[in-house]
Design a binder for these strands. Structure first.
Lengths: 195, 195
DNA sequence: GTCTATATCCGGATAGAC
DNA sequence: GTCTATCCGGATATAGAC
């Protein structure tokens, strides 16, 4: 990752974020030093401060970018007609998005403790907004009689935990393709809500 | 938490573990100093080393004790007759055990990264053994025709993620009693496996 | 835009007094 | 069994040279 000295304003910023994301995900925010991040990019620690005011902001930006991209990507999906198909669509979307960004996903739910209170509040609001996307689908289906759900909020949290938990065992090139994972989880999710 | 000077060999050891568990769960292993732990118990940092060879071992012991207790407690439950009732029993057991020990649960799945390779291997083996307890119930029901499961391993991981995820939102004295949580999750789990 | 050098502080762990 | 004092390393962040 070492690089020559000189001016690289356009590439250095993203390179720092990439390196920080990878290292934070691997070892945890508190265990990674600014020196390590700099070394990964081929800089000295002091140079990082041209791109971020401090380490805390670097963490927050990574998490905030991830959550913002997640919410925007879901907003951009065309609604399927019925709640049943919309739920399938959510499952496919969630699995795709999360399988493609394992480090960001890991960070977004492992490093909440290391955010300052103000930053934590912002990320929590985004997290809640995402949960509400799923809850709306469940409520809609329940109201239309497509689903039979005892407690919408609990089911929402149960399904999100189930879906996000994929990152614990899923490995690229492992026993199951992403498509197979999607099929299996669509089935599991359908069963938990079906009338 | 301050206490008078003197000899307290029998109480100090557990007090240190309690404090470490609480602080590690709250702030993360890497973010907590030995001085903080000592202060919480009313000691100076040096005194901790009479009770643990180092910080890493302190973490490992907390996680190892938790996993050992978990496996022993499940082994101690009397098997229900059919796989259907045994699965219900597992759900009730898991929820009870985890609701009673939120800090230990949090630690056991958040701090794997901070274990030394040798210690990690030990905890991973225990984790896998616990997963296998659930998988055995699912396989048994599948074989007997009580359950209809597409992929036993994936369903195992999905259910464990769903159940363990309760810690994200459950709060003592909140909207739902532990009994209500159990009822709701038993229903969700039954649906995902039922024939 | 990056480096070197440094201020300042805090970390884990140990030695020896009490 | 605990404390004080300390070693030694490494942390974040800044100042000023290039």
């Amino acid at each position: 990752m070492a690089r020559k000295a000189g001016s690289h304003a356009e590439t250095t910023g993203p390179a720092i974020r990439d390196a920080a994301l990878r290292l934070f995900a691997r070892s945890g925010f508190a265990a990674v030093s600014m020196r390590e991040i700099a070394a990964e990019v081929g800089l000295r620690a002091g140079a990082l401060y041209l791109y971020t005011p401090d380490k805390q902001t670097l963490l927050f930006d990574l998490m905030h970018n991830h959550m913002t991209a997640l919410l925007a990507a879901w907003d951009a999906t065309r609604p399927a007609v019925g709640p049943d198909r919309r739920l399938e669509q959510f499952v496919a979307f969630h699995i795709d998005f999360h399988i493609e960004r394992p480090d960001a996903v890991f960070l977004a739910y492992m490093e909440l403790r290391n955010l300052s209170p103000e930053n934590f509040a912002i990320i929590e609001t985004q997290r809640r907004a995402y949960e509400d996307c799923l809850e709306a689908i469940l409520s809609d289906g329940q109201q239309k009689g497509t689903f039979t759900i005892k407690d919408t909020r609990v089911t929402t949290m149960a399904l999100i935990a189930m879906l996000t938990g994929i990152h614990v065992w899923y490995r690229d090139g492992g026993r199951l393709t992403p498509e197979r994972v999607q099929t299996l989880y669509k089935d599991l999710v359908r069963r938990t809500v079906q009338a």
